[in-house]
């Protein structure tokens, strides 16, 4: 863990460069080979060649969506882990992704909605519903919100929404093909308009997360201490919940339910930059963007010429990590 502000700033800037580097790689590498030269020309002197078109309409949106979603999911991971005091909390495990996914599938297959703006709101609705369900269920009974209860309630809700999604797909085979790849979590073939549609919410979410960072530091000391220090607990929890729903909901609307980024990144980020949320939140965002970009680049090469959905990639990388934390992290509590 880095101690001085200078060293933190250095690693922060280096990670920023790493993210930019991955964005560049994401634009250049893939099934159609291009070069940095070509990519540069595509933006400065566009000549409608095949490569230029691919770079401008396929690769660039893809890279930007991966970066935005990776950053958002990592931030939600940090917020949820601090809020619930649960090292395994993330939008994937706690069912928020599944809720948003269900809402979007429902709207595509049953109500035939195709407006991009509507997608975002539907996704928020699903995410919010799932979050409320998990909160209510896990605070029921004695002993309050223990990490174990939240995790179990989350997987129960997650199981519920994915069964419902599956049910819709089984009875509606035409819609099945359409949403299968999306449901796996993928940044392939997304249009820039989709990112534009959710970007206001993403910006609100990111800004709010940065603003709330000092309070998260207080919250991390435990609910009792936080109340003693004058934090309005209920208000801060609801506020954090809204940020989580905004960010996770936007990510799902843009890229489908992508798991594990929200679990892995906060842990790595804490190891590198420490527990101060004012550093942790922005740093996790950079790291999350880098990881999702890297996973997406790898996803293009594994079974070339076809692609692995990036959600599958993150699950493959993330599960061993998850099991490691499950074996280690919760054993003290």
């Amino acid at each position: 863990m880095l101690k001085t502000s200078l060293s933190k700033l250095t690693i922060f800037i280096l990670t920023g460069f790493l993210m930019v580097f991955f964005i560049g790689m994401s634009i250049v590498f893939g099934y159609t080979n291009t070069s940095i030269q070509l990519a540069y020309e595509a933006f400065t002197q566009f000549n409608e060649s095949n490569e230029h078109l691919i770079i401008r309409t396929v690769r660039l949106p893809r890279a930007l969506i991966a970066a935005a979603c990776g950053a958002s999911l990592a931030i939600t991971g940090v917020l949820m882990q601090t809020l619930t005091k649960n090292p395994l909390a993330s939008p994937g495990i706690l069912g928020i992704n599944a809720g948003a996914g269900f809402a979007v599938v429902l709207s595509i297959t049953i109500f035939h909605i195709s407006s991009l703006q509507a997608f975002a709101w539907i996704s928020f609705l699903g995410a919010g519903l799932a979050a409320i369900c998990v909160y209510v269920i896990s605070s029921a009974g004695t002993g309050g919100l223990t990490p174990m209860k939240i995790t179990l309630a989350g997987s129960a809700i997650s199981a519920m929404f994915s069964s419902l999604t599956q049910g819709i797909l089984v009875t509606n085979e035409a819609g099945f093909e359409q949403v299968l790849f999306w449901l796996a979590g993928s940044v392939q073939g997304r249009k820039l308009e989709l990112l534009a549609a959710v970007s206001p919410y993403l910006f609100i979410g990111w800004t709010a997360a940065l603003m709330i960072a000092p309070r998260m530091n207080v919250l991390a000391m435990g609910d009792d201490v936080a109340v003693g220090l004058g934090l309005k607990l209920g208000r801060i929890k609801i506020f954090t919940g809204i940020i989580v729903i905004l960010l996770a909901g936007s990510s799902v609307a843009a890229a489908g339910p992508i798991g594990f980024i929200g679990i892995i990144i906060p842990h790595i980020a804490k190891k590198i930059i420490g527990l101060d949320h004012r550093w942790l939140i922005p740093y996790s965002a950079l790291l999350g963007a880098s990881l999702l970009l890297a996973a997406d680049i790898a996803a293009r090469y594994i079974i070339m010429p076809r692609e692995v959905p990036v959600g599958v990639m993150t699950a493959l990388i993330g599960t061993p990590f998850f099991i490691y934390i499950a074996r280690k992290g919760l054993s003290q509590s």
């Binding site: 395994l88 495990i93 174990m148 299968l180 790849f181 796996a184 959905p309 699950a315 998850f322 099991i323």
Partner: peptide, 24 residues
């Protein structure tokens, strides 16, 4: 506790494998 948590992780991995096979 560990049994359930590891189980949840493995469940997610299995779902990812299923999705991978279905998509490809």
């Amino acid at each position: 506790v560990r049994l359930v948590l590891v189980g949840i992780g493995i469940a997610a991995l299995m779902q990812a494998c299923t999705t991978l096979l279905m998509v490809t």
